[in-house]
Design a protein around this nucleic acid. Structure first.
Lengths: 196, 196
DNA sequence: GAGTAAACTTACTCAGGAGTTAAGTTAGCC
DNA sequence: GGCTAACTTAACTCCTGAGTAAGTTTACTC
């Protein structure tokens, strides 16, 4: 994870990974078959761990907003403690082909589905759904995950910021806005085009 | 750009790039010196173009929200028309070392600074600054850029969605929330810890 | 403590791809 | 027609790094 995160898949050298793990290269091939196999194992573990922690945290029966809060808190806590894994999973894996791409897609979709589910719940929970539907849930989920991802970088620059505080800030940015939108308050752009 | 975007820096083969450009490999080396030089040129152009378009759009004198709206619209329009460039700049470049990392960092910082500037303006423009400060501006800017990045993926799955509509959705998610927070409405988490 | 299987290492092979060299080819110009 | 500039083609060198083969240590059994 550490090496893949720092160097990227292609630039990561199996020898370095083996050294760092305190074993020799042939052992890596014995255990994982190939570099690709090793990488897939990394992604799989990371994705499943993250999804599991997120859903575990969000599973408690309560309002959708609080579930989302719990899930995001778990997410940030996990990433803060384990930045490499997230970087590998979300930032650099997608461009590879074949089996790797497939596994990454699977793990990512799982994360996205979990978030989308909570957002959807938040929308339908509101009485006045204000015309927001499935597409909006997906949109918000994408934006949320992207924001969270980017904030992992911000978090690295602010090591004293607790994951809960980050979640709180993010919830205030997003959820309060969504609630307002659901309540009918909408921001609108200027009527005429701003520039030719 | 196309090849770097599809394959990633390391897996990109100079021969393929040359073929696609309709020139021969030695010419690539004549013009750019090395693969790294070529890549840096790509990043530089992309970053400067994007920053320029964003700032151009946001430069018109008006409310900070409308400036942000204009800037984000320009951003989405640019990325929609030129996905490869964004992918190269934001998603895969950072993990390389040396000169590449330096240039990427420079371009990214420029984008981030532009966004942060507008968010900061939005905060100070409000009468009741509600205790939000520079750190909050940076936080929101990070979240915004991350969301925008992630939404470029969503956009690729929804080709009929106009960039302006995406911006509108995003503005409604973020700005309305921020306005509410500035006005004093705050979302708070459950009092007791959700899980042990 | 010899025999042996499992766990491991050292030292290799071999392919792919960055970067180069050299010998053309084409177009424009005097 | 010869000269130059801008290129191409195609072969090459050389290095890095994935994957492997053969040998060596460890640990366990009788």
């Amino acid at each position: 994870m550490q090496v893949f995160s720092k160097r990227g898949y292609h630039a990561a050298v199996v020898d370095e990974i083996a050294d760092l793990a305190g074993i020799s290269k042939p052992m890596v091939y014995l255990y994982f078959g190939s570099k690709e196999g090793l990488f897939i194992a990394c992604i799989k573990r990371e994705g499943e761990l993250l999804t599991h922690e997120f859903q575990q945290a969000a599973a408690v029966e309560q309002g959708a907003d609080q579930q989302l809060w719990a899930g995001l808190s778990a997410f940030f806590a996990h990433v803060a403690a384990n930045r490499d894994g997230w970087v590998v999973l979300y930032r650099q894996a997608p461009e590879q082909g074949g089996e790797i791409a497939a596994e990454v897609e699977r793990q990512r979709a799982a994360v996205m589905a979990a978030v989308t589910g909570l957002v959807r719940a938040g929308i339908t929970e509101s009485d006045s759904s204000a015309g927001l539907g499935e597409e909006d849930a997906e949109f918000v989920a994408h934006a949320l995950v992207g924001a969270a991802d980017s904030l992992t970088g911000w978090m690295a620059d602010h090591p004293n910021e607790a994951p809960e505080r980050i979640t709180l800030r993010l919830m205030n940015m997003v959820w309060v806005g969504m609630r307002q939108v659901l309540a009918g308050e909408v921001w609108t752009p200027p009527a005429e085009p701003v520039e030719g």
